[in-house]
């Protein structure tokens, strides 16, 4: 039955396609990715080569890790909008501290605000029950303020990008970007955690039915606090990787990645209401968005149009998923 649906386009035209998409969201996503690459090849013949692929993967990885933060928080029905600020903070602190400090010390210093913001997010959401969106938005505002104050204190010392991070961010070995060395284990860990460990199941459980989870003895606030700390730490690591890629520390370094990270998780099939989704879809979602960005750049679409498109994607995909769920 599903074979017949594979041939048809990934547009919800019939019930079977809908059911198929609900069961196996990965296949239509991969088809969409291939279609986008083909369109790109038609528009600019010869653009799709080894170097382009390596480049696309390089830029997709930071997005994919941040989208991983969104995937995990969304599974519990939350969202983490502070990832951009956290990534920027860790990148900026790393770049400025490494001038005078040992890289290991600089690394620890860089990860400190990440842990702290994650902890505050987790306590706010888990204990005080603030809506995650409002909470993470608030901590990101505070974080940005702290970063501005911090910037004044280090303005004289300058900044530099550690060679290791530059190697990790931009280097390519045998046609494979070095960033994969970090990303592949990380992605495997996230997929494994979500699918095979107790913590991963708790995330799904909390997102699916919080009351039932609590009644069966789960300490809701502990799960949420750990989750937001993990999310923040991942964002911090992304920041370090991203500074190696961009090589220019600024106070709004990773901010443009926030909206796409939400969009990537939503495209990847993670329900923004919680309880459904996974990380593999998110990775493909991040790839799709990176290719889409290249496409929009080639078409000379301005930044504003890109944001509008991302917004519409989030809305459309969420509405479509809601329909699919109701159909069942």
């Amino acid at each position: 039955m599903s074979n017949a649906a594979t041939i048809s386009k990934p547009v919800p035209i019939g019930r079977r396609v809908k059911r198929f998409m609900a069961d196996r969201p990965l296949i239509p996503l991969i088809i969409l990715l291939v279609i986008l690459v083909v369109i790109l090849q038609i528009l600019r013949p010869g653009i799709v080569n080894e170097r382009w692929i390596a480049n696309t993967i390089k830029f997709a990885i930071p997005l994919a890790i941040l989208a991983g933060c969104q995937t995990m928080t969304m599974l519990t029905g939350g969202i983490d909008l502070s990832v951009g600020t956290v990534a920027t903070m860790s990148a900026f602190i790393m770049a400025t501290q490494v001038v005078n400090q040992d890289p290991a010390v600089a690394f620890l210093l860089a990860m400190m605000p990440a842990v702290l913001i994650g902890l505050v997010n987790g306590i706010g959401v888990g204990v005080f029950r603030v809506h995650p969106l409002i909470m993470t938005l608030g901590t990101s505002l505070i974080g940005t303020g702290c970063l501005q104050v911090y910037q004044r204190t280090v303005i004289a010392s300058g900044a530099k990008i550690p060679d290791f991070l530059a190697w990790l961010g931009t280097g390519v070995t045998y046609g494979f970007p070095n960033a994969l060395l970090l990303f592949v284990p990380l992605a495997a860990l996230i997929v494994f955690t979500l699918a095979r460990t107790g913590f991963g199941r708790l995330l799904y459980a909390v997102g699916d039915n919080e009351r039932a989870t609590r009644l069966s003895g789960v300490q809701y606030w502990q799960v949420i606090t750990v989750l937001y700390v993990i999310s923040s730490v991942l964002a911090g690591i992304t920041g370090l990787l991203y500074i190696g890629l961009i090589k220019a520390p600024s106070l709004s370094l990773a901010e443009p990645l926030v909206l796409p990270s939400v969009a990537a998780a939503v495209i990847g099939g993670t329900s923004i209401f919680g309880g459904r989704g996974g990380y593999t879809g998110t990775i493909i979602g991040a790839l799709i968005l990176t290719v889409l960005t290249t496409l929009l750049t080639i078409l000379q679409m301005p930044e504003g149009a890109r944001r509008i498109l991302f917004g519409l994607i989030v809305l459309f995909v969420t509405a479509a998923y809601l329909r699919i769920v109701e159909e069942r």
């Binding site: 969106l133 923004i272 944001r307 509008i308 917004g311 519409l312 809305l315 809601l322």
Partner: peptide, 26 residues
């Protein structure tokens, strides 16, 4: 119409309106 929760819809329109604002004046 979409029956998507208000917080998601207005998050999406947040993106859209921000983009539209950038299109009007960059």
């Amino acid at each position: 119409v979409t029956r998507v929760p208000d917080i998601v819809v207005t998050l999406a329109t947040l993106f859209v309106l921000q983009g539209a604002a950038l299109l009007v004046l960059d």
